[in-house]
Simulated scan of single mutants.
Amino acid sequence: MRLNQFISASGFCSRRKVDKLIKEGKVTVNGNQISLGHVMSEGDRVEVDGQLIKAKVNDVYLMLNKPPGVTCTAASGIEGNIIDFVNYPERIFPVGRLDKQSEGLILLTNDGSIVNELLKEENEHEKDYIVTVDKKITAEFIEDMASGVDIYNPRKKGNVKTKPCRVVQLDDYCFKITLSQGLNRQIRRMCRRFQYTVTQLQRVRIKDLSLGTLALGEWRPLTQEEIAKLK
């Protein structure tokens, strides 16, 4: 097994972070600094900054109905972070994000191997959101949202056009939108483009996983069937 895969699978940090730590000389195997791409042997002792890394015993997969006000970060120094909120006895991290004001389905795990699969935009995994806005919805608004919207992308520091998507009006102020991409604050920026302000945003589905009846603020482990679908 490659060293970065072993450390990531232990739940210590992401593979990208492992590679950075290796470059900085903070990772040792049997007391020796190693280079990128190192392949481990059975019985190797791995340390990061002197901390022993142990093989993970069990994979953990949780579904949380995140309430507004909780921040999707594993950084312990940030007040209201999702890890403190869940208070799970083992080290876990959130898969992707919901912005602080939003609520709904988010996954937490210690399995770094599923992160890229779920978050890579080219995999086009669908996510459903229920969105409430501050004024009456028109047919033109629904059509415009579904066709793709020019919004600001802070990562590219410029405007991009969102992919066409499914949008269904639920009542005068509420609609469901299905996205296969996850740009920063995408739905809020899309609505703002047409002078609508989001007053409530809830994610209810990721791929084959649905929020169902899970109460706001509650979490539960995924079933074996759900884990199989996730992978």
Results as ranks from 00 to 15, higher is better:
V167M: 03
V27E: 07
G182C: 03
K176G: 01
I7K: 11
Q169Y: 05
N4K: 10
E218V: 00
I151W: 09
K136M: 12
V39G: 03
V18P: 00
R97C: 03
T132A: 08
D84H: 15
T138E: 05
L64N: 06
I106F: 09
L201F: 06
V70Y: 07
K56W: 05
R185E: 01
K56E: 12
Q200V: 05
T178N: 09
D49V: 03
N32P: 00
T197K: 14
D171F: 01
F175K: 03
I7R: 10
K136C: 07
R192G: 14
V115A: 10
I92H: 08
F85P: 06
P89L: 11
R155G: 00
G11H: 13
E42M: 13
D49Y: 05
S8C: 10
E124K: 15
L119D: 03
I206H: 05
G148P: 02
K127R: 15
L118W: 01
D99W: 09
D49H: 07
S180I: 15
I151P: 09
L36H: 07
E140P: 01
A146P: 05
F12P: 04
I92L: 12
F175A: 06
V48S: 13
D19S: 07
N87P: 04
E79H: 09
L3P: 03
R45E: 15
F6S: 02
N184F: 13
E122R: 14
D84R: 15
C191G: 11
L211K: 01
R189Q: 08
P94I: 13
K207D: 12
M145A: 07
L36K: 08
M63C: 02
D208E: 14
L179D: 01
T109E: 10
A74R: 12
T138Y: 04
T109A: 10
K20M: 08
Q101F: 09
S35T: 12
K17G: 02
V48H: 11
F85G: 07
M63E: 06
T109N: 08
S10R: 08
E117K: 15
A55D: 11
Y173H: 04
R193M: 07
N159M: 09
Q5S: 14
E117T: 12
R203M: 01
T132L: 01
R193Q: 14
G31Y: 04
E24N: 11
V133I: 15
C13G: 09
D84T: 14
D84C: 07
I187E: 01
F85N: 11
L107M: 14
L52S: 12
L119C: 01
N184T: 08
V115I: 15
G69S: 06
Y196H: 13
M1D: 13
Y173D: 00
K135I: 00
H38C: 12
Y173K: 02
G148C: 08
E218Q: 15
K23M: 09
Y129Q: 08
N159R: 11
R15E: 02
V168H: 06
Q101R: 10
R220G: 03
